[in-house]
């Protein structure tokens, strides 16, 4: 079970950012243990302005899960591997679109 999922601000599109923000708000944390059983993930979702993975960021979609780089053809694929459903209407490849 992932404990921390980090994503780069530049690497996500608007829909995925909103989705990750919402999932992160639902996830349990030290500060908010009152989250209900419907949370999609126990992981802490963390947005970073830059994760210092610039080459990988430029190449495509990625997440850093518990410190390990994970890449795939889309954030939807990456998130599905951790039990998080994708946002509606997310394009296949959205990195570098901002």
């Amino acid at each position: 079970m992932a404990e921390t999922i980090e994503y780069c601000l530049r690497n996500v599109g608007g829909e995925t950012r909103e989705r990750l923000t919402a999932v992160g708000a639902d996830a349990p944390s030290d500060d908010d243990a009152a989250t209900g059983p419907d949370a999609e993930t126990d992981a802490e979702i963390v947005e970073r302005r830059c994760l210092q993975r610039c080459g990988d960021c430029y190449r495509g979609d990625f997440l850093v899960v518990d410190g390990t780089l994970e890449t795939a053809d889309s954030h939807a694929t990456l998130l599905a591997a951790h039990g998080v459903a994708p946002a509606d209407g997310v394009p296949e490849r959205e990195a570098s679109d901002r």
């Binding site: 921390t4 980090e6 802490e44 963390v46 390990t68």
Partner: peptide, 8 residues
């Protein structure tokens, strides 16, 4: 860069 107690 980041928190010393979590993540990468």
């Amino acid at each position: 860069y980041g928190r010393v107690d979590r993540g990468q």
